[in-house]
Protein backbone atom coordinates (compact mmCIF):
# COMPACT_ATOMS: atom_id res chain seq x y z
CA UNK A 1 0.00 0.00 0.00
CA UNK A 2 2.85 2.33 0.98
CA UNK A 3 4.54 1.86 -2.41
CA UNK A 4 1.30 2.70 -4.23
CA UNK A 5 0.92 5.94 -2.23
CA UNK A 6 4.55 6.82 -2.89
CA UNK A 7 4.07 6.00 -6.56
CA UNK A 8 1.09 8.39 -6.82
CA UNK A 9 2.95 11.13 -4.92
CA UNK A 10 5.93 10.84 -7.26
CA UNK A 11 3.61 10.76 -10.27
CA UNK A 12 1.86 14.00 -9.20
CA UNK A 13 5.30 15.60 -8.73
CA UNK A 14 6.17 14.66 -12.32
CA UNK A 15 2.93 16.17 -13.61
CA UNK A 16 3.07 19.34 -11.53
CA UNK A 17 6.76 20.02 -12.23
CA UNK A 18 6.11 19.62 -15.96
CA UNK A 19 8.70 16.86 -16.26
CA UNK A 20 10.19 17.18 -19.79
CA UNK A 21 10.28 13.46 -20.50
CA UNK A 22 6.65 13.08 -19.43
CA UNK A 23 5.52 15.95 -21.66
CA UNK A 24 7.58 14.74 -24.62
CA UNK A 25 5.79 11.38 -24.40
CA UNK A 26 2.36 13.03 -24.05
CA UNK A 27 2.96 15.35 -27.00
CA UNK A 28 4.18 12.51 -29.23
CA UNK A 29 1.09 10.45 -28.26
CA UNK A 30 -1.21 13.33 -29.15
CA UNK A 31 0.67 13.98 -32.40
CA UNK A 32 0.56 10.33 -33.49
CA UNK A 33 -3.06 9.71 -32.49
CA UNK A 34 -4.26 13.12 -33.69
CA UNK A 35 -2.68 12.70 -37.12
CA UNK A 36 -3.96 9.11 -37.40
CA UNK A 37 -7.44 10.23 -36.49
CA UNK A 38 -7.36 13.12 -38.93
CA UNK A 39 -6.34 10.77 -41.75
CA UNK A 40 -8.96 8.20 -40.70
CA UNK A 41 -11.61 10.94 -40.76
CA UNK A 42 -10.54 12.32 -44.14
CA UNK A 43 -10.73 8.78 -45.57
CA UNK A 44 -13.53 7.31 -43.46
CA UNK A 45 -16.15 10.07 -43.59
CA UNK A 46 -16.50 10.10 -47.41
CA UNK A 47 -16.63 6.29 -47.42
CA UNK A 48 -19.34 6.28 -44.73
CA UNK A 49 -21.27 9.04 -46.51
CA UNK A 50 -21.04 7.28 -49.87
CA UNK A 51 -22.31 4.02 -48.39
CA UNK A 52 -25.21 5.79 -46.67
CA UNK A 53 -26.26 7.98 -49.60
CA UNK A 54 -25.69 5.81 -52.68
CA UNK A 55 -26.84 2.32 -53.57
CA UNK A 56 -23.42 1.08 -54.66
CA UNK A 57 -22.70 -2.55 -55.61
CA UNK A 58 -21.25 -4.70 -52.77
CA UNK A 59 -22.47 -2.06 -50.32
CA UNK A 60 -23.66 -4.66 -47.80
CA UNK A 61 -20.36 -6.51 -47.95
CA UNK A 62 -18.33 -3.33 -47.43
CA UNK A 63 -20.49 -2.32 -44.45
CA UNK A 64 -20.03 -5.80 -42.93
CA UNK A 65 -16.26 -5.58 -43.45
CA UNK A 66 -16.16 -2.15 -41.80
CA UNK A 67 -18.22 -3.38 -38.86
CA UNK A 68 -15.81 -6.30 -38.49
CA UNK A 69 -12.88 -3.88 -38.71
CA UNK A 70 -14.24 -1.98 -35.70
CA UNK A 71 -13.28 -4.96 -33.57
CA UNK A 72 -9.94 -5.57 -35.27
CA UNK A 73 -7.43 -6.64 -32.58
CA UNK A 74 -4.65 -4.01 -32.51
CA UNK A 75 -1.99 -6.71 -32.15
CA UNK A 76 -3.20 -8.38 -35.35
CA UNK A 77 -3.24 -5.04 -37.18
CA UNK A 78 0.29 -4.35 -35.90
CA UNK A 79 1.48 -7.78 -36.97
CA UNK A 80 0.19 -7.47 -40.55
CA UNK A 81 1.52 -3.96 -40.90
CA UNK A 82 4.88 -5.15 -39.54
CA UNK A 83 4.99 -7.90 -42.18
CA UNK A 84 4.37 -5.30 -44.89
CA UNK A 85 6.86 -2.76 -43.55
CA UNK A 86 9.67 -5.09 -42.43
CA UNK A 87 12.80 -5.09 -44.56
CA UNK A 88 11.77 -8.33 -46.34
CA UNK A 89 8.12 -7.16 -46.72
CA UNK A 90 6.56 -5.67 -49.88
CA UNK A 91 6.79 -2.11 -48.50
CA UNK A 92 10.09 -2.59 -46.69
CA UNK A 93 11.95 -0.34 -49.16
CA UNK A 94 10.11 2.74 -47.76
CA UNK A 95 11.91 2.33 -44.45
CA UNK A 96 8.96 3.21 -42.25
CA UNK A 97 9.28 0.50 -39.62
CA UNK A 98 10.04 1.80 -36.11
CA UNK A 99 9.09 5.38 -37.00
CA UNK A 100 6.22 7.58 -35.76
CA UNK A 101 4.84 7.44 -39.33
CA UNK A 102 4.42 3.66 -39.05
CA UNK A 103 2.57 4.20 -35.76
CA UNK A 104 0.30 6.76 -37.46
CA UNK A 105 -0.46 4.27 -40.25
CA UNK A 106 -1.21 1.54 -37.68
CA UNK A 107 -3.57 3.75 -35.71
CA UNK A 108 -5.21 5.01 -38.89
CA UNK A 109 -5.95 1.39 -39.86
CA UNK A 110 -7.62 0.90 -36.46
CA UNK A 111 -9.59 4.16 -36.50
CA UNK A 112 -10.69 4.08 -40.15
CA UNK A 113 -13.38 1.36 -39.79
CA UNK A 114 -14.76 3.06 -36.67
CA UNK A 115 -15.04 6.48 -38.31
CA UNK A 116 -16.39 5.05 -41.59
CA UNK A 117 -18.86 2.69 -39.96
CA UNK A 118 -20.19 5.17 -37.39
CA UNK A 119 -20.40 7.91 -40.05
CA UNK A 120 -22.37 5.54 -42.24
CA UNK A 121 -24.76 4.73 -39.37
CA UNK A 122 -25.12 8.42 -38.45
CA UNK A 123 -25.92 9.51 -42.01
CA UNK A 124 -28.17 6.53 -42.76
CA UNK A 125 -30.21 7.35 -39.64
CA UNK A 126 -31.03 10.91 -40.71
CA UNK A 127 -34.79 11.27 -41.22
CA UNK A 128 -35.52 10.97 -44.98
CA UNK A 129 -37.70 14.09 -44.72
CA UNK A 130 -34.50 16.17 -44.41
CA UNK A 131 -33.40 15.12 -47.86
CA UNK A 132 -36.87 15.77 -49.27
CA UNK A 133 -36.97 19.21 -47.63
CA UNK A 134 -33.62 20.08 -49.22
CA UNK A 135 -34.99 19.02 -52.64
CA UNK A 136 -38.17 21.07 -52.23
CA UNK A 137 -36.00 24.09 -51.42
CA UNK A 138 -34.05 23.70 -54.66
CA UNK A 139 -30.96 21.73 -53.67
CA UNK A 140 -28.76 20.08 -56.30
CA UNK A 141 -27.98 16.38 -55.68
CA UNK A 142 -24.67 17.35 -54.03
CA UNK A 143 -26.30 20.06 -51.88
CA UNK A 144 -28.98 17.58 -50.88
CA UNK A 145 -26.34 15.03 -49.80
CA UNK A 146 -24.46 17.73 -47.89
CA UNK A 147 -27.67 18.72 -46.10
CA UNK A 148 -28.07 15.12 -44.92
CA UNK A 149 -24.41 14.84 -43.85
CA UNK A 150 -24.66 18.20 -42.04
CA UNK A 151 -27.71 16.93 -40.20
CA UNK A 152 -25.65 13.96 -38.97
CA UNK A 153 -22.65 16.10 -37.99
CA UNK A 154 -22.89 15.63 -34.23
CA UNK A 155 -23.28 11.86 -34.53
CA UNK A 156 -20.34 11.83 -36.95
CA UNK A 157 -18.28 13.81 -34.42
CA UNK A 158 -19.26 11.28 -31.78
CA UNK A 159 -17.92 8.57 -34.11
CA UNK A 160 -14.67 10.48 -34.56
CA UNK A 161 -14.34 10.80 -30.78
CA UNK A 162 -14.93 7.05 -30.46
CA UNK A 163 -12.08 6.58 -32.96
CA UNK A 164 -9.86 8.84 -30.85
CA UNK A 165 -10.69 6.82 -27.76
CA UNK A 166 -9.68 3.66 -29.57
CA UNK A 167 -6.31 4.93 -30.82
CA UNK A 168 -5.31 6.78 -27.65
CA UNK A 169 -5.76 3.64 -25.56
CA UNK A 170 -4.15 1.32 -28.09
CA UNK A 171 -0.80 -0.34 -27.37
CA UNK A 172 -0.59 -3.60 -29.35
CA UNK A 173 -0.13 -2.23 -32.86
CA UNK A 174 2.19 0.69 -32.14
CA UNK A 175 4.53 -1.31 -29.95
CA UNK A 176 5.06 -3.73 -32.85
CA UNK A 177 5.54 -1.18 -35.65
CA UNK A 178 6.97 1.65 -33.52
CA UNK A 179 9.38 -0.40 -31.44
CA UNK A 180 8.97 1.75 -28.31
CA UNK A 181 12.22 3.64 -28.91
CA UNK A 182 12.91 6.16 -26.13
CA UNK A 183 12.58 9.77 -27.29
CA UNK A 184 11.45 8.72 -30.75
CA UNK A 185 8.52 6.29 -30.83
CA UNK A 186 7.70 5.93 -27.15
CA UNK A 187 4.16 7.07 -26.41
CA UNK A 188 1.96 6.99 -23.31
CA UNK A 189 0.57 3.48 -23.58
CA UNK A 190 3.85 1.83 -24.57
CA UNK A 191 5.70 3.70 -21.82
CA UNK A 192 3.19 2.54 -19.22
CA UNK A 193 3.63 -1.07 -20.40
CA UNK A 194 7.43 -0.78 -20.34
CA UNK A 195 7.81 1.12 -17.04
CA UNK A 196 5.36 -1.22 -15.27
CA UNK A 197 7.40 -4.15 -16.53
CA UNK A 198 10.54 -2.54 -15.12
CA UNK A 199 8.88 -1.72 -11.81
CA UNK A 200 9.25 2.08 -12.32
CA UNK A 201 5.76 3.05 -11.33
CA UNK A 202 6.12 6.87 -11.01
CA UNK A 203 6.19 7.61 -14.72
CA UNK A 204 3.68 4.83 -15.46
CA UNK A 205 1.20 6.18 -12.88
CA UNK A 206 1.66 9.78 -14.06
CA UNK A 207 0.96 8.74 -17.66
CA UNK A 208 -1.90 6.56 -16.48
CA UNK A 209 -3.50 9.57 -14.79
CA UNK A 210 -3.05 11.68 -17.93
CA UNK A 211 -4.44 8.90 -20.12
CA UNK A 212 -7.46 8.48 -17.83
CA UNK A 213 -8.04 12.24 -17.94
CA UNK A 214 -7.92 12.19 -21.73
CA UNK A 215 -10.28 9.18 -21.84
CA UNK A 216 -12.66 10.97 -19.50
CA UNK A 217 -12.54 14.11 -21.66
CA UNK A 218 -13.26 12.01 -24.76
CA UNK A 219 -16.25 10.42 -23.02
CA UNK A 220 -17.58 13.83 -21.97
CA UNK A 221 -17.12 15.17 -25.52
CA UNK A 222 -18.79 12.05 -26.94
CA UNK A 223 -21.79 12.51 -24.71
CA UNK A 224 -21.96 16.22 -25.54
CA UNK A 225 -22.02 15.55 -29.29
CA UNK A 226 -24.56 12.75 -28.89
CA UNK A 227 -26.86 15.09 -26.97
CA UNK A 228 -26.49 17.81 -29.60
CA UNK A 229 -27.35 15.22 -32.24
CA UNK A 230 -30.47 14.20 -30.37
CA UNK A 231 -31.54 17.86 -30.38
CA UNK A 232 -32.33 17.47 -34.08
CA UNK A 233 -35.84 17.86 -35.33
CA UNK A 234 -37.46 17.01 -38.59
CA UNK A 235 -40.64 18.89 -37.79
CA UNK A 236 -44.05 17.73 -36.81
Amino acid sequence: MQSIIEGFAAAFRLIVTLNPELWRIILLSLEVSGTALMLATVLGLPVGAFLALRRAPLRGLVISLLNTGMGLPPVAAGLFLYLFLSRSGPLGFIGLLYTPTAMIVAQCILAFPIVASLSHAAIANVDPVIRQAAITLGATPIQESLAVVREARYSILAGVMAGLGRVMAEVGAIIIVGGNIAGYTRVMTTTIALETDKGNFELAIALGIILLTISFSITVALRFFQRLGQGGTSGN
Binding site: D127, I130, A133, A134, T136, G138, R150, S234, G235, N236
Partner: peptide, 19 residues
Protein backbone atom coordinates in the same frame (compact mmCIF):
# COMPACT_ATOMS: atom_id res chain seq x y z
CA UNK B 1 -33.11 22.18 -61.38
CA UNK B 2 -34.06 25.57 -62.85
CA UNK B 3 -37.73 24.61 -62.71
CA UNK B 4 -37.45 22.99 -59.28
CA UNK B 5 -36.08 26.28 -57.99
CA UNK B 6 -39.24 28.10 -59.07
CA UNK B 7 -41.58 25.81 -57.13
CA UNK B 8 -41.72 24.49 -53.59
CA UNK B 9 -43.65 22.20 -51.31
CA UNK B 10 -43.94 22.59 -47.54
CA UNK B 11 -44.06 18.99 -46.36
CA UNK B 12 -46.50 17.91 -43.61
CA UNK B 13 -43.50 16.89 -41.45
CA UNK B 14 -41.61 20.05 -42.20
CA UNK B 15 -38.08 18.61 -42.31
CA UNK B 16 -36.55 21.34 -40.20
CA UNK B 17 -32.74 21.25 -40.06
CA UNK B 18 -30.97 20.83 -36.72
CA UNK B 19 -29.60 24.37 -36.59
Amino acid sequence: LALRRRITLVLPRTGIFNT
